[in-house]
Design a protein around this nucleic acid. Structure first.
Length: 211
DNA sequence: AACACGATGGACT
DNA sequence: GTCCATCGTGTTA
């Protein structure tokens, strides 16, 4: 079941959390999303939207539910999904990891790997490579049939949260904000040590280290 | 027109 | 842990 566009019509923070456990589908390949990061528009000093609209980032100012691809370090393709209450909010979610549910042979060939492992699609560059995505997928609509589609997952999952990765250039506040989300128990997650289950409201706070 | 630098990944010590 | 491939983009001039 393809996710309706209304799913993306809210802040990237909410969309990111809800993406964990959903599926990316392209032809015979099905991938369960295990890790994402939310980027929150021009006010977020780590976001590509921080300098306003540019040639590269045009897709993130467009309709929610569309793809924004970009090239990192000159060689890695990064998959982002546009979010936001309205087109023009500049919100996007970077998809950082996944588990192969179907089409393993296709993914192995694209990744030039010989065997499945939890690390096969753990990392944004790996995930895009496994799905065969590149810059040409920018502006593609994942809420419409054909090409890359976003499908519903199995429902309730346990989610971990922590700081985003690789954004040392950003303001301290944005570096520390818990805007990265991951599927608890999955091996296809990077920087696991900096993730934690959100503290439940009403529960007594436990000291970080013994007194 | 020149330049510095990444929302990384793989190989290696 | 370290090193570095590789190039489009934003910035500055």
């Amino acid at each position: 079941m393809i996710v309706p566009r209304s799913f993306f019509a809210r802040p990237s923070l909410e969309v990111a959390r809800a993406l964990i456990g959903m599926r990316l589908v392209r032809d015979d390949v099905v991938v369960r999303i295990t890790e994402v990061e939310a980027y929150g528009g021009p006010a977020d000093s780590a976001s590509h939207a921080r300098h306003g609209r540019t040639t590269r980032n045009a897709p993130i100012w467009g309709p929610p539910g569309h793809v924004y691809m970009y090239l990192c370090y000159g060689l890695h393709q990064m998959l982002n999904l546009v979010a936001g209450a309205r087109a023009g909010d500049g919100h996007a979610i970077l998809v950082r990891g996944g588990e192969v549910l179907a089409g393993l042979d296709t993914v192995l060939a694209r990744r030039r790997a010989s065997a499945a492992s939890p690390a096969l699609l753990a990392g944004p560059g790996k995930l895009a490579q496994g799905l065969g995505l590149d810059l040409a997928f920018s502006h593609h609509d994942v809420c419409a049939p054909g090409g890359l589609e976003l499908h519903e997952g199995d429902g309730v999952v346990r989610v971990l949260a922590g700081p985003r990765v690789g954004i040392d250039f950003a303001a301290p506040r944005d570096r520390r904000a818990p805007l990265r989300f991951a599927l608890a128990g999955s091996g296809a997650v990077t920087e696991l040590a900096t993730l934690a289950a959100p503290r439940r409201a009403g529960r007594a706070r436990t000291p970080r280290r013994p007194a």
